[in-house]
Design a protein around this nucleic acid. Structure first.
Lengths: 197, 197
DNA sequence: CACACATGTAAATGTTTGTTTACTTAGTCG
DNA sequence: CGACTAAGTAAACAAACATTTACATGTGTG
């Protein structure tokens, strides 16, 4: 507290935590866009502007970095479906699918969940995350959490994933260009049809 | 009885067309399951039990083999949505998603469409195929092919893709274990909600 | 200030990759 | 039969890969 510090990104030239976060950030983008196998550690290091060896220093391996990115996606998704109500599902889906607020975009986290490194541990993680999400969607329906309700909740989830995929990865027109207003109508129809009050 | 009968593979010892088809078959499985980058040409050659060089002989390159697989998927999908009627969509979706008749499984062709080699030409192909499919679904709705109808048809397509993804790639319970009968109800609700008569 | 350690880098490691080359073998036909 | 060609193989190729090693340097602390 003796000397004044810049509060926002003091841009210290050497900062482990900051570099770690930077690697996470750029790796996430690559993994989402290109997948695990098609992304090289040199791609990531170059994007971050740091040396390749730092990936192994901070994340042990490429695989470790990938799992860290998956963890980020998991918390992001959980934050968005936690304590959600049935009425909020449609609006939040349309909003989060359509609008990207730069950081922590829910659609990106959904796409991250579709990526795999091939490691079975990663596949188990992905299944657990998605299962938790579908249970929360089923709970929002306010009905007994039987298999039928869970199945219908997972079809809602499948729709969200499918739309996000057609939009971000395939860029299929016209759904890729649809905005929040265009989506909220059809999505309301789907959710009401699958999880009626 | 010392007569040994090797009825197993009546495959002629040397047959270019047959070997080409075999490579296509095993490559398709690998590309769908592991993706383009994670699949090596040696994996494919070993699965087929032939030499690696034959891939380049028959398909010019790994990329060429991938595009051939994509072409297979395209015809398979087109065959299944051609001249489809609104009433058939739900039944066919439930049937094709749930039951796998070994060869030419529509769900596998859908998953193939989600794979990319990174080549832009491939991405253009994928977009064209999916756009044709959504136009045929919109036509089945029997309504003027306006943007709104096309958008809703693409959401139907997105649902099919999402369900297939959760089932085959992620193996998420319980949707992964749902049979035709379990799916036809919810799917009817979705299609009726999106493309009403 | 000077030392020590955390932070970062350059270069080399041994595999694995897709592709090409040179060669062998099976099938066909005069 | 005997050779000619199509079909298939083994080995070699350079490039790209993830990871490790040895070294350099910035930064906080005594």
């Amino acid at each position: 507290m003796s000397s004044e510090q810049v509060v926002q990104t003091p841009r210290r030239r050497r900062n482990a935590a900051e570099t770690r976060q930077l690697l996470l950030h750029v790796a996430r983008i690559r993994f989402i866009r290109d997948g695990y196998a098609a992304t090289t550690v040199r791609d990531i290091a170059d994007d971050a502007g740091v040396n390749v060896a730092l990936i192994n220093r901070y994340f042990t391996s490429k695989e470790g970095l990938f799992e860290a990115c998956l963890g980020m996606a998991a918390s992001d998704i959980n934050r968005n479906v936690d304590n959600i109500t049935l009425d909020q599902i449609t609006a939040r889906m349309a909003n989060k699918i359509a609008t990207g607020t730069d950081e922590g975009r829910l659609q990106d986290s959904l796409m991250m969940l579709l990526r795999t490194s091939g490691e079975e541990r990663v596949n188990v993680m992905r299944r657990e995350i998605l299962h938790a999400v579908s249970e929360k969607l089923a709970a929002a329906a306010g009905r007994p959490a039987d298999e039928e309700t869970l199945l219908r909740a997972q079809i809602v989830l499948a729709t969200a994933i499918g739309i996000t995929l057609l939009r971000t990865s395939l860029r299929l027109a016209p759904i890729a260009a649809a905005d929040e207003l265009d989506l909220v109508g059809p999505l309301t129809d789907v959710v009401n049809a699958l999880l009626p009050h």
